[in-house]
Simulated scan of single mutants.
Amino acid sequence: MQHRGWIIYNGNLYSKKFSEQVEWLKTTALAFDIELTPMKNNELVVLIEGGKAIIKPPIELPDFVFFWDKDLFLARQLEELGLRLFNQASAIEICDDKALTYQQLAGHGIRMPKTIIAPKIFIDLTDTSHLSHVIESLGFPMVIKEAFGSFGEQVYLIHNEQELYDKVTELGNKPFLFQEFIQTSYGKDLRLNVVGDEVKAAMLRKSDHDFRANVTAGGKMYTYQPSEQEKDLAITCTKLVGADFAGVDLLIGENGEPILCEINSNAHFKNIYDCTGIDLTQAMLKYIKETIS
């Protein structure tokens, strides 16, 4: 029996990097007897009418959706219509918001950097009294991360009190968090790609000139064989956020122990293929096929 699915991608963020991976997914799907149709998120209008959730224009719904975007309103609407999303809206929401990620993982014994979520600001920062607690708890250098950001952007290394005040003033009412800087992981981290209950690929990322190891920020990729401890941590975190598949980024602690950095629900798969030769689309489509059959 052939299954039909949609790949939802962002219609206003569609570069060659995205289009190549969408076509890649389509091609892999055929090997699993799945017909995947690319759909821009702005092709599907979220409508509430007569007290019901509706998608416009009227269209035959697929068997499932590979939701490769962060349009949560659309994701929830599709789920309301009974569709199974990979990943589901709740997982995308948790992973997209770094503060929410850390709160979701708290209380489960997950090793994470010490983190302070910045108090909500509605217009401008006028009261900085909380910063004394931040400095006392984290010291310098510390990291500031905007709650929403990708590819290592919106992450800042803060060296002193003046830089701290300048950055929080600049950020204004954007949601962000303060975080302990893991010195032993300066310019290096691990990316483990989880599908279901397994780590399917992993790489070490290193930068010679930046505290961030992201490839987009100039980091280089190296094949890596993760330890059982690293794999267990990545799989546990993926399950705790409710993701079917994820790119889990780990920092490296003082004694080599893994420390959760963040979880990406919409992780790209081209870089890790270029690094390891492992085609994650095979594992993801196999997982989808087994789940919906």
Rank of each mutant, 00 (worst) to 15 (best):
K167V: 02
K40R: 14
E290P: 07
I92S: 09
A91W: 00
V65L: 11
I288R: 04
E161H: 12
E170N: 10
P119A: 13
D71W: 00
K167S: 07
E230K: 06
S185P: 07
Q179C: 04
E161Y: 03
Q103F: 12
G82F: 04
E136K: 13
G277C: 10
V22H: 03
T37L: 14
G218T: 01
P62W: 00
E170S: 14
Y156V: 08
Q162I: 13
K289Q: 09
E93L: 09
D124F: 07
G172S: 07
L13M: 11
T169N: 14
G172T: 06
L105N: 02
L131W: 04
N264M: 12
S185Y: 01
Q103G: 07
L30Y: 12
N160W: 10
F73S: 12
V168L: 11
D127G: 09
L44R: 05
E290N: 14
I158R: 09
Y186M: 09
E290G: 07
V65F: 05
I235D: 05
G149E: 00
I121S: 05
L25G: 15
A53Q: 08
F32Y: 12
I135K: 15
P38W: 03
I92W: 03
L30D: 05
I117T: 10
P175G: 13
N10A: 12
N214P: 06
D96W: 14
K239C: 12
D127P: 03
T28F: 03
S129T: 14
A29S: 08
W6R: 09
N10L: 05
T281R: 13
L47T: 02
S227H: 04
C261Q: 08
A53G: 04
M221D: 12
G82E: 10
D249F: 00
M39R: 12
G242K: 11
V143S: 05
C275G: 08
K167W: 06
E35D: 13
F211T: 01
E161Q: 15
